[in-house]
Simulated scan of single mutants.
Amino acid sequence: MTVLLVLVGGAIGAPLRYLIDRVVQDRRDSLFPWGTFVVNLIGCLVLGALSGAGSALSSPLFLLLGTGFCGALTTYSTFSYETVRLAERAAYFYAAMNVVVSVSAGLIATVSTYALVHALVG
């Protein structure tokens, strides 16, 4: 049952990741990988909220949404690849900003939604 929940969550998160990435990136005329940034930020917000819910959230639901959905929605490998590609193109400012902004925003999003949901469910 555990594997099935993760599989279903991943089957929803992976195509959604692709679609969000394309919609966002197609609307931006910039070297910065906005699509990947947005999906990773959404994933951090969702996972922070799920974690903040703690024991109020059932384990199967966390497996479905946290492990499956967020795991497939977010992408550390694409973030890393896009950072390397920016550096290869000598877009060092964008490469550095991708790392700094993505990591900072992800941590802020996760911590703030965790704290908010934890305080509400508390």
Rank of each mutant, 00 (worst) to 15 (best):
Q25T: 15
S102N: 13
V121N: 10
E82L: 02
V121L: 05
I42D: 01
L64H: 09
G122T: 08
G66V: 02
V101W: 05
G106F: 10
L116T: 14
T74M: 03
A105Y: 01
A96W: 10
I108G: 07
R85T: 12
L73C: 09
R22F: 03
R89P: 01
V100E: 03
A87Y: 10
V101Y: 02
G54P: 06
M1P: 04
A56W: 03
Y114I: 00
L64E: 06
G43L: 02
V46A: 11
V6R: 08
Y114L: 14
V99D: 00
Y81D: 00
G106S: 08
F93Q: 12
A95S: 13
S58E: 05
V103H: 11
R17E: 10
S59G: 05
S51W: 04
I108M: 11
L4F: 13
T78C: 08
T78G: 09
F93L: 15
D21Y: 10
G13F: 02
L107T: 07
M1W: 07
T2P: 00
H118R: 15
V99R: 03
V8L: 15
I108K: 02
E88M: 12
V117K: 07
G48R: 04
G9R: 02
A115M: 12
V6G: 06
A49F: 01
V99F: 13
L65Y: 03
Y114E: 07
M1N: 04
R28P: 00
E88K: 13
N40A: 11
T83V: 01
L63N: 07
L65H: 07
V111Y: 13
A119E: 11
D21H: 13
L116V: 13
L7S: 14
S77K: 00
Y18D: 12
Y92A: 03
L116G: 14
G66N: 06
Y114P: 02
L47S: 09
E88S: 09
V117L: 11
Y94I: 00
T74E: 01
L5K: 11
A49T: 03
L16S: 09
C70E: 04
D21I: 03
R17F: 04
N98T: 12
N40K: 10
L41N: 00
L31Q: 13
D26K: 13
A56K: 12
L19C: 09
G43C: 06
S58Y: 04
V101Q: 03
